[in-house]
Amino acid sequence: MKYFKSSTLVVLISILMGCGGGGESESKAAAPEPIAVVSDPPQDNTVKKTADIVADADFDFSTKFNLKLDAKLAGLDQRAYLNVCLAPEEGNKVNLNSCLFRAPLNENGLTESIMISHSEIKLVAQVWFYDGSTTPLQYEWQYQGEQAEQSFLIR
Score class of each variant (00 low, 15 high):
G132W: 05
E140V: 02
D60P: 06
A29Y: 14
G21Y: 12
F59I: 06
N106F: 00
Q144R: 10
E24R: 05
T50G: 14
P104W: 04
T135F: 09
L110M: 10
L76W: 00
E26N: 15
L105D: 02
A57T: 15
A80K: 00
F65V: 04
F65K: 05
L12E: 08
T8P: 07
K68C: 06
P41Y: 10
D70P: 04
C99M: 06
Q144I: 07
V47C: 13
C19V: 11
Q43G: 08
S27F: 14
L67N: 02
Q78V: 05
V124Y: 04
K64P: 01
Q142V: 12
S151L: 04
I121M: 08
T135E: 14
W141D: 02
E89N: 09
S6P: 05
Q126E: 05
G23C: 04
L123D: 00
G75C: 08
L137I: 03
C19Q: 14
L137H: 04
K49R: 09
S27N: 14
Y81K: 02
E90I: 09
S119H: 13
N106R: 01
L69K: 05
N106G: 02
S98F: 06
D58T: 09
E33V: 06
L96S: 09
L96T: 13
N97F: 03
L73W: 03
D56V: 07
K5V: 14
C99Q: 01
V127E: 01
F129H: 02
G132M: 01
M17R: 09
I154Q: 01
S113A: 13
L82F: 01
K93W: 08
L153A: 13
Q150W: 07
I35E: 15
Y130T: 05
A87T: 03
D44A: 06
V47D: 12
R155N: 12
Y130Q: 08
G18V: 04
K122M: 13
D77A: 10
D70Y: 08
Q150K: 03
K64W: 08
V37A: 11
V37L: 11
V124K: 00
H118C: 09
Q144M: 11
K5P: 04
Q43H: 14
M17F: 08
V38D: 08
Q126M: 06
I15A: 13
T46G: 07
P88T: 02
C85V: 03
P104Y: 00
G18H: 06
S113Q: 13
I121L: 10
K2V: 13
S14Y: 10
Q78H: 04
T135S: 07
A51S: 14
G145T: 14
K2D: 15
E112Q: 08
L153S: 12
A36S: 15
A71G: 03
V94I: 10
K68Q: 13
F61E: 14
A148S: 11
A51W: 00
K93P: 06
I13R: 06
K49S: 14
T111P: 03
T50I: 07
L12W: 13
E112Y: 01
T46E: 15
T63L: 06
T135V: 12
N83P: 03
Q126S: 07
D44T: 05
P88A: 04
H118M: 10
L67Y: 01
I154Y: 03
A74I: 03
L76E: 00
T135M: 06
N95I: 05
P104H: 03
T46V: 15
G20T: 05
D60Q: 02
E107K: 00
R79L: 07
E146T: 09
D60N: 09
A87I: 02
S133A: 12
V127R: 01
L73C: 02
W128P: 05
E140K: 07
Q144W: 12
